[in-house]
Computed example of a mutant assay.
Amino acid sequence: MTTPRESVLTAADHQHGLPAVELRAVTRTYAAGPQQVRALDGVSVAFPAGSWTAVMGPSGSGKSTLLHCAAGLERVTSGQVLLGGQDITTAGDADLTALRRREIGFVFQSFNLIGSLTAEQNVALPLKLAGARPSTKDVRAVLAAVGLDDRRRHRPRELSGGQQQRVAIARAMVTRPRVLFADEPTGALDSAAARKVLGLLRELVTAGQSIVMVTHDPAAAAAADSVVFLRDGRIVGHAAAPTAREVADRLARLEA
């Protein structure tokens, strides 16, 4: 797979050995009535540039909170979040919004496509929101890269679940983000569609993209380069290139 234009930011990360994104002693607490819930408890982790990391853990372990804090969607209570070495923890709301539009791609389990727009229009939307004039050539190139050039005029209801998720990935990639965050990207797909989406993510990583993915599926996690395990808001383990069985066994022990 080739992306429309090389990501200069990702190339710079490789050159200088910087992590794509890094959390340093990050804590995130929420008010729950009179008490405080600590969703993340002093988490320190670096996600290497040009790699694919899966984040797993039991329900309530802090997976989604970690993803949202790393992507700048949630403010941390304490600690630091660095994107390509840049501390984004104290960035103002306007700067953070601009940074997310420019350097972060996000893929959701529920696709979040606009039903009244075609695939091509959905992919172009982030560029329009950022105040840029979308290049038809670039938009179509991204759709072609995910195998949907012949579906560019179709609306979401005319596409299968797997096709909708590939449109969502193209939409996340069109801005050439430094990091692609994925929250259960295969959770709403059947096994065949999930394999296609995981294959596409692998192609993106081979081309130099950095991916951080939350998943509950051991097979999806095993497709990544490495897996980080969470429990009770803390990192409790790491595995490099594990099999699906190894991931499932580790997760079962954490849940027990």
Rank of each mutant, 00 (worst) to 15 (best):
L148A: 01
V142A: 14
R101Y: 00
R101W: 00
L113F: 10
S110W: 05
R151N: 00
Q109A: 08
V123F: 01
T118H: 04
S135Q: 09
D150E: 08
T136G: 14
L129P: 03
L113Q: 14
T136L: 12
R133Q: 14
V142I: 15
D138G: 03
R140V: 04
A141F: 04
N122Q: 05
L148P: 14
T118D: 04
A124W: 00
E120Y: 10
A119F: 09
L125K: 03
E120M: 11
S116A: 12
A141T: 14
L127W: 00
I114M: 15
N122G: 06
F108Y: 15
L129A: 11
R153M: 11
I114E: 07
V139P: 09
I104V: 15
R133H: 03
D150G: 04
L125V: 03
K128I: 13
R153V: 02
D149S: 12
A144S: 10
V146R: 04
L113Y: 07
V107F: 08
T136E: 14
L113V: 10
I114F: 15
V146E: 12
S110I: 03
R151V: 01
V107N: 08
N112F: 10
R133I: 03
N112S: 05
F108L: 08
S116E: 11
R151F: 00
A130R: 07
R152K: 06
R153F: 01
L127N: 14
L117V: 00
L143Y: 06
R140Q: 13
A124K: 05
R102T: 13
V123S: 06
R101P: 00
S116N: 10
D149E: 12
A145Q: 13
A130D: 09
A132I: 02
G131A: 09
G105V: 07
G131I: 05
A145G: 09
T118Y: 06
T118F: 07
R102V: 08
D149P: 04
G131T: 05
A144F: 00
I114G: 12
R133G: 02
A141M: 07
E103F: 02
R100K: 05
F111S: 11
A145P: 11
R101N: 10
G131P: 07
L113C: 14
N122E: 04
D150Y: 02
L148Q: 11
E103R: 13
N112I: 02
R100E: 01
D138N: 12
F111G: 12
N112L: 11
